[in-house]
Design a protein around this nucleic acid. Structure first.
Lengths: 199, 199, 199, 199
DNA sequence: GATGAATGAGGATTCATTCAT
DNA sequence: AATGAATGAATCCTCATTCAT
């Protein structure tokens, strides 16, 4: 979401930054192209020159953001120890959402909108992410640590929970450290692994 | 969200029902007042006569929905057994979100919008809900069942997770029964109560 | 414009008072029937019950106001002395506009609107007033005091000038007394009577 | 109010011309933005692009018109002979109002609306105009030609009278020449200068 | 590669009027 | 004689998009 180097940011990059902030705050439908262009410091026409349309910008933004998130999460797959790998996954997600809270806002407000205009794009992207989570949790399951819950279900739930926990952290409880938040989530994950006695 | 009796529903009630459905599906910004009025079977002016503005309608809707949810959740407070009371709480939330999935969508897409137009209203409403959850979980904590997590934090996390789980249930896994979903969540709750050291 | 006695004012009267104030301040088009009814302390339907329409109310108001003004001005006709009669006329107009400045505002903003909705009514009413002025000025002219100006022209000009002078008095220079203002106008009137040498 | 050269008039200019005509005829509240845009031959959005709102257009129009009027009146200040300078002032006002009778209608219907939306703007503009009139009349007063009237009062009255006389001329007596009308007004001005005792 | 004036379909809002009570 | 909930045509305003420069 930011340029890697200190080179003068391109129009595309400036628009990404501006759009991410504004759309995260007010929702895709609540932001005008004028506002995005003004915040980015470019002319309105530049949006159309670079992205073709407002929706084009939003979709590019979603794709770009999910790419970054996936990249971050994939690091967990490389961790050999099963428990540590889940922890790395959780930590990576929190790291990403902590750096780009607007992206979490964008995701959460579009993710469950049944016929939303970005639903198609989002479904694919969500599947990418959940697949990564699933691969990590599968090892957890193979180690017998996921009794009674189907891996796919658990992965989807974990991703959703990560999203809202990160948002709550950024919105209502900024004073907490990432380590604390990560431990809360791990508590839940470990709960899923407990032998489930009735009551 | 529906009239209690079989009396002819008032304009306000008809508008609530219509707005809840449409706004839940497409988001507040994605629905026009014309559409809401048409769906409710009243004239557009009636929206303004009764709610003053589109935003007024949305705010009234949020308040009304949260009232219903709170009413549902408060029943858990009356349950004497601690474990059962949490179960009643979880079940009540799922019952409510299962009946009004559109409301869950509305909540999730507006709840974490930092300077959003409904953020003020929603913050208050969220506090109401979290307070109820907190009172129930407090008893859990008093019983020594909530080791290592602060009650407020746990309550917020539980509410967020309930929201997301309910949405995932309604959006991607409708075939599951409420009992199954409730058990998954209880697994997490029990996990929070598992005694365990650092890491 | 007010009830003669201390009896409880009728709905009609309350509506007259409210309408006069609001329309004088904001213009006929700038005031809603709701506002008039609310200010009058009656229900909106009462306007339609009593006057048939908003325009009906405005026209009734114009007619009523002009009647009062005409009544006031006609007193000047009864004054025997020519000079005094003009003075009485001027004083009467200022007295009336001083008491009902809103009516002056209403008149001035509708009087010269070529195809205005009240232009028909206003033309007739204006003719009534100008006719009275004319009868008074005619005596002035007969006495040789109006050299070089046609009586009709002078009457129209005098009425218009009275209107704007009264408005300026009420709007920008309330500290002046009616006597002062009257004297300024009389100065002009006497000017019209001066033998007109070139330069 | 019209372009100085034969260059293609800008959107702003076309809107000024159209708005002046329509608003003068029917009042600011009686004209729709659609009508103004259609008359100007531009799209409705162009009004909002250039003036922000309907009120913005009206205010710009008032300012622009008053500028033109002030420019016209200031020429009288340059005339050395006192009597001639007043005559030039009167003639300039009549020339302007004769060319833009709609502007006179706009002024007269908004000028004395106490809390009107344009009252702030108009007060300032009125002061500009009256100040010019005052400077011209001051010389008249210095020459002992303004006995018994305060210059400020006389200036305000003269401006108001000019307005009304011009409107009456344009509305009810178009056959009269500007010279005739100017002479009638000068008669009044000379009247103000006539030495005379009380009553 | 970028601009920004202009557009016009679409959406929020107002308000005079109606009518059942 | 009076009311006020409901209406919908009319209006103001927004904003994604286009295009000439």
């Amino acid at each position: 979401m930011t340029t890697a180097k200190a080179t003068k940011p391109s129009s595309k990059q400036k628009l990404f930054d501006a759009a991410l902030r504004l759309i995260g705050e007010r929702g895709a439908a609540g932001v005008t192209v004028d506002q995005i262009a003004a915040t980015a410091g470019v002319a309105k026409g530049t949006v159309y020159y670079n992205f073709g349309s407002k929706d084009g910008l939003v979709e590019a933004l979603l794709r770009h953001g999910v790419d970054l998130l996936a990249e971050q999460l994939r690091r967990a797959e490389a961790v050999p120890d099963t428990e540590s790998s889940v922890e790395t996954l959780v930590d990576g997600a929190l790291l990403f959402f902590g750096e780009y809270p607007e992206f979490a806002q964008l995701l959460v407000s579009e993710m469950w909108r049944t016929p939303g205009q970005f639903h198609g794009t989002l479904s694919l992207l969500r599947d990418d992410i959940v697949a990564i989570v699933k691969r990590v949790l599968q090892r957890h399951a193979d180690a017998g640590r996921l009794c009674g819950v189907e891996v796919g279900t658990a992965s989807a739930a974990l991703f959703g929970t990560l999203l809202v926990v990160a948002l709550d952290w950024q919105t209502f409880q900024r004073q907490r450290t990432r380590e604390e938040v990560r431990e809360s989530v791990m508590l839940l994950v470990r709960g899923m692994g407990r032998g489930q006695g009735k009551r």
